[in-house]
Design a protein around this nucleic acid. Structure first.
Length: 113
DNA sequence: CTAGTGACTGTTT
DNA sequence: AAAACAGCCACTA
């Protein structure tokens, strides 16, 4: 079809690229999808996902390093936290993740810790 | 068509 | 540190 890929498709594709054990922000996903200022759209696209999706949506958190789902009063917040911890991502009691440590960076890691 | 809302972000008070 | 404002876009009524 001549129909161009929707923003959703691009967003999903970007989310799929997040490596296991890492997290990224909505803004970063939007940027990867070529929608640099549509972080909100990313959240909206993810909200449209169904249960059982193969998309690693749990690796997407907000720029404050916090799980937006918990803050939004979603029951899926617990699921996200569980999945992250299962991948080795440390989630604080307040639902916070250290972006400095687990934030997905396209740049190469430091040669020394 | 308009108006309201949202899994956001960055800047300014 | 917390709240308010503005910006951006898609979906629903």
């Amino acid at each position: 079809m001549s129909t161009a890929e929707t923003s959703y498709e691009r967003i999903y594709a970007a989310v799929r690229k997040i490596p296991r054990g890492k997290v990224t922000t909505y803004g970063a996903i939007a940027r990867m999808a070529g929608l640099d200022r549509q972080a909100r759209l990313v959240g909206y696209a993810l909200s449209a996902l169904r249960d059982g999706t193969a998309l690693p949506w749990h690796r997407v958190i907000n720029a404050q390093g916090r799980l937006s789902l918990e803050h939004a009063g979603r029951s899926s917040g617990l699921t996200q936290r569980l999945r992250l911890e299962r991948e080795g991502v440390v989630v604080d009691a307040g639902g916070r993740v250290s972006l400095a440590r687990f934030g997905w960076k396209v740049r190469a890691p430091r040669k020394s810790i």
